[in-house]
């Protein structure tokens, strides 16, 4: 799409291993040069030419959109880094453990100057295999970080048994089945799995159709809610031995059609949808095939903010599917499914 500088956002709850991953990225012989935006400047040793300390200043935009927040410090820093264009190939933003990823992501869509020069490549979340389950229960930030992720590193797997690992993976899948999930120890991972993910991830994400999202398979959902004391906000059921969790508030689903969409129907629909339901939609993304359009259109959104562009021509023989995923809280799924279906172009 462009020569925009790719930005990777590293999130993860306190102690999960973000800094370990960052140092690994910087120390491996990959020939790439990074500009790194970190917090708590100076407290951790980071060996890199371009390291910038950030204040994590989250600002509200005065545009009538309550969930539209941006990172003011990021806007300034990226503007400043562009003075040194050519000195780095990519930007890595490390957020604090308690950060909500939404303002970071929204910054790249809302601020025009930033959006012209940089693009969000992926949100990479490092999760602590041992403690994530607890954090999902008591820390809303941790849940947001999982929901937002494009790539999740389930780290410190050496401290947990295999059944426990499967359990925590099922919890993650219950919130965000679309992220690429890796098991790691000390964040050891081939770097192409976390950097330069853009188009690849979108394609891959949209190929996943988790079985438990399919409706009408005849299985019974035993929603055994015990709303008493000390209750767990999840429930589970078994599909042939594989555990599936449904998070009570956080859900995700995908929509798809092989019929070309009408852009004059789709854009008003999605804009209206995020204007109405944006606070509930943490993330949405998709690849679209419009009628009489030789190019794939990709879009992504955070709350009420949408960003989209033509990506590349459809290849010969490539199936022209339109697919989109939504991750959020208490979303009106049926309404979204029907609305999407209504965007199909007349034959």
């Amino acid at each position: 799409m462009s020569d925009k500088i790719p930005v990777t956002v590293l999130t993860g709850y306190l102690g999960a291993g973000k800094t370990t991953l960052l140092n690994r990225i910087l120390s491996e012989p990959h020939g790439q040069k990074f500009a790194v935006i970190v917090n708590e400047f100076g407290e951790i040793g980071i060996d890199n030419d371009l390291v910038v300390g950030a204040d994590e200043e989250v600002f509200e935009m005065n545009n009538g959109c309550i969930c539209c927040t941006v990172r003011g410090d990021l806007i300034r820093i990226i503007d400043g880094l562009m003075r040194r264009k050519g000195k780095f190939d990519a930007i890595i933003v490390e957020t604090t453990g308690l950060a909500d990823p939404a303002p970071v992501a929204q910054t790249f869509f809302v601020d025009e100057n930033v959006g012209q020069k940089a693009k969000l490549d992926a949100v990479v979340t490092v999760a602590d295999a041992k403690y994530l389950k607890d954090r999902l229960r008591d820390a809303p930030e941790a849940k947001n970080q999982i929901a937002f992720a494009d790539v999740i590193l389930l780290n410190k797997t050496d401290l947990v048994s295999e059944p426990d690992l499967r359990e925590v993976e099922a919890r993650i899948r219950g919130i965000n089945p679309y992220a690429t999930l890796h098991r790691t120890q000390r964040c050891a991972i081939p770097l192409p799995e976390v950097l330069g993910r853009n188009a690849f991830d979108l394609d891959r994400i949209l190929d996943i159709e988790p079985s438990f999202l399919e409706e009408g398979n005849g299985h019974d959902h035993h929603h055994d809610h015990d709303h008493g004391h000390d209750h767990d906000h999840d429930h589970d059921h078994d599909h042939g031995g594989l555990k599936h969790y449904h998070d009570e508030h956080m859900q995700s689903f995908s929509v798809r059609t092989d019929k070309p969409l009408d852009p004059d129907k789709f854009f008003p629909w999605i804009q209206n949808l995020v204007a109405q339901e944006g606070p509930k939609i943490l993330r949405c993304k998709g690849i679209l095939a419009f009628k009489n359009d030789p190019e794939r259109f990709v879009f992504q959104g955070v709350h009420m903010i949408l960003d989209g562009d033509h990506q590349r021509p459809w290849k010969d023989g490539e199936e022209r599917l339109s697919r989109a995923v939504f991750i959020g809280r208490d979303m009106p799924e049926e309404m979204i499914r029907e609305g999407f279906a209504g965007c199909v172009a007349k034959a």
Binding site: G53, R76, I77, G80
Partner: peptide
């Protein structure tokens, strides 16, 4: 001036 923490002067 030189900032003690070498922060950006922007």
């Amino acid at each position: 001036a030189t900032d003690a923490k070498r922060r950006w002067v922007d």
